[in-house]
Design a protein around this nucleic acid. Structure first.
Length: 254
DNA sequence: ATGACTCCCAGTGGGAGA
């Protein structure tokens, strides 16, 4: 089966591209981030016509996540249980024994800011919840826009980005602690082209120059690890006219 | 250069993203 994550940066704007992508590159399930619309505006009909069931958790203007799947997901959870949050950032659901957690990590804006502190608190709460979730569901995938470049090789210019948001040691430490509960970065299970990114700034011809960051990830549990056959970044949608600034990441599991 | 683009809500600009 194929699973994917994609930050669409406004589902209202990107719906035609999402539908075209699902038709060209069918997946069994995909988690979406940055819907930027409320559930009453969610395009359930169009997505159902494309052959997908949708679980949505939207918000006006900012954030918003969804889980699309061929078969309807059950045991759906919105946001991190026990962590009070005004922002719609997590949606989880089960497809049989497979637990899928889709997440839009806070951006953090700038190290030391209130938003940065929120990002770190959020990541700790996610880890605490996922530890229990993993115990209950050994076959677990955490996919989404992590807004963290885990290592320098995930950054086009590590010197310029050193200590900047997405690349601070604190964020990377939180990322490693999240992995340490029993997850593995599916992308790094395979040999990958150097300079592999999932996000490119809209400015400065960054995509054409391939100047980006790898901040969208698929982490799989140890139980799933032997069944992961491939993981790739699909740059095709980033070449569209009016693209999202993020590209999808696709993982193939037996 | 605290830039550059895109999206949103707004309302003829400004915040946020990353």
């Amino acid at each position: 089966m194929k699973l994917a994550t994609w930050n669409v940066n406004s589902l209202a704007v990107r719906l035609p591209q999402l539908l075209a992508w699902l038709e060209a590159s069918p997946v069994d399930a995909v988690v979406l981030q940055e819907l930027k619309l409320t559930d009453d505006k969610f395009p359930f009909d169009e997505i159902r016509a494309a052959g997908y069931e949708a679980q949505a958790f939207g918000q006006k203007t900012y954030n918003g996540v969804a889980l699309l799947s061929r078969a309807p997901a059950d045991a759906v959870v919105r946001n991190i249980p026990g962590f009070a949050d005004e922002q719609a950032r997590v949606i989880a659901g089960s497809l049989g024994a497979l637990r899928i957690v889709g997440a839009y990590f806070p951006n953090g804006q700038a190290p030391g800011s209130d938003k940065f502190e929120y990002k770190l608190r959020w990541m700790r709460a996610l880890r605490d919840w996922l530890e229990a979730e993993l115990a209950a569901h050994p076959q677990l995938v955490l996919a989404g826009d992590f807004n963290v470049a885990p290592e320098d090789r995930d950054v086009h210019d590590p010197v310029a980005w050193a200590g900047q948001i997405h690349c601070t040691e604190e964020e990377r430490e939180h990322f490693r602690k999240l992995v340490a509960i029993g997850l593995v970065d599916a992308f790094r299970l395979f040999e990958q082209p150097p300079k592999s990114w999932t996000w490119w700034d809209y400015r400065n011809l960054a995509f054409r120059r391939n100047q980006g960051l790898r901040i969208d990830h698929v982490l799989v549990s140890e139980a799933l690890r032997p069944r992961v056959n491939a993981c790739m970044i699909d740059k095709a949608p980033r070449r569209n006219e009016r693209p999202s600034d993020h590209a999808p990441v696709v993982v193939t599991i037996d």
